[in-house]
Amino acid sequence: MTEFPASLLNGYADFMSGRYIEERERYQTLAETGQKPHTLMIACCDSRSAPETIFNCGPGELFVVRNVANLVPPYEPDGQYHATSAALEYAVQVLKIRDIVVMGHGRCGGIQAALDPLDQPLSPGDFIGKWMGMLRSTADQIPSTDIMTQAERQTALERVSIRNSIANLRTFPCVRILEEKGSMRVHGAWFDISAGELWIMDSVTGDFVRPKVTAPEQTMAKAAS
């Protein structure tokens, strides 16, 4: 039998002796009653930007969909295989999610591939090339490095891509109808890996701004005063 990665087994041992003991009742309740997450999070596969870690969420709180570059394809009921669309459908129709967040991040490899496609595909299937093709026309509109640095171009496309995915979300009838009724909210967010900064998309202007948050130590200080 192939040897299972030791680092994962060690991590599991730590989990069972630590967090699982602390949250045993929650896990048992979730097993018996099912999941009732409050938010659908559409995030990137990148190992550096895990939503559960960034938002400090426990089990059962987030319904997470991760794909290369956190893309949402447009609504296409064409009989093909659509993993992100299937997850979206389940989250909205079965879990009754009422908040959806599309979260991108800095230094995204998928976005870099959209800006500067490889001369040769990584494999005969060219799965990443085809997937990132959804952004090709958008990437072509980002000014060249004669005007912007490569880092500036990438950050720009990372954020524009979030707005593009939100626009695609609204092509799904289940999202559009609920949002028009006021019972569904769609959000955009961008996480800077190096600085740990979270930027939130303004729902009116589309600009990304830093939210005002209170650090835990500040909250404790206020409570004690």
Rank of each mutant, 00 (worst) to 15 (best):
T29P: 01
C45M: 11
S144D: 08
I54A: 07
N164R: 02
P74V: 07
H105M: 03
K36W: 14
P73D: 02
I193V: 06
K181M: 13
L135A: 06
I111W: 00
M148H: 06
R19G: 10
G58T: 05
G60L: 03
G34T: 05
M103G: 09
H187K: 00
P143M: 11
V204S: 11
R107D: 15
R48Y: 08
E152N: 12
G188W: 01
S165V: 07
K181F: 11
E76G: 14
C108G: 01
K36Y: 13
S194M: 13
P117M: 01
E25K: 12
L30R: 01
Q150M: 14
V68G: 03
K212C: 09
T149N: 05
G110H: 04
T214V: 14
V213T: 15
T2P: 15
S225N: 12
A215F: 12
H38G: 15
G58L: 03
H105L: 04
A69W: 01
L157E: 09
E61W: 04
G104K: 05
G196H: 06
A13W: 03
R153T: 09
M148Y: 03
R163M: 08
T219N: 12
V186G: 04
G109I: 08
I177L: 15
A156I: 02
R136M: 06
P5G: 04
C57D: 07
M148V: 06
E52R: 13
V64N: 00
R153E: 12
E22T: 10
R24K: 10
K181S: 14
V68L: 08
K212G: 09
S165P: 07
I128D: 00
H82E: 00
S161E: 14
R153M: 08
P143C: 11
A151Y: 11
E217R: 00
M132P: 08
F55G: 05
G60K: 01
S194F: 08
P216C: 03
E158R: 14
G188H: 02
M201K: 02
Y90F: 14
A221Y: 11
L62H: 07
F63P: 03
N56F: 06
E152F: 10
K212I: 09
Q93P: 06
I166S: 13
D146R: 08
W131S: 01
K36V: 13
P143A: 11
I111G: 00
V65W: 06
R19T: 13
E180R: 15
Q141P: 08
I200S: 04
D140C: 05
G129R: 01
L88T: 03
V92L: 07
E61H: 06
M201C: 07
T145A: 12
Y81W: 11
I100K: 09
E197Y: 13
S144V: 12
V94T: 11
T2H: 15
E32W: 04
M220P: 07
P59C: 08
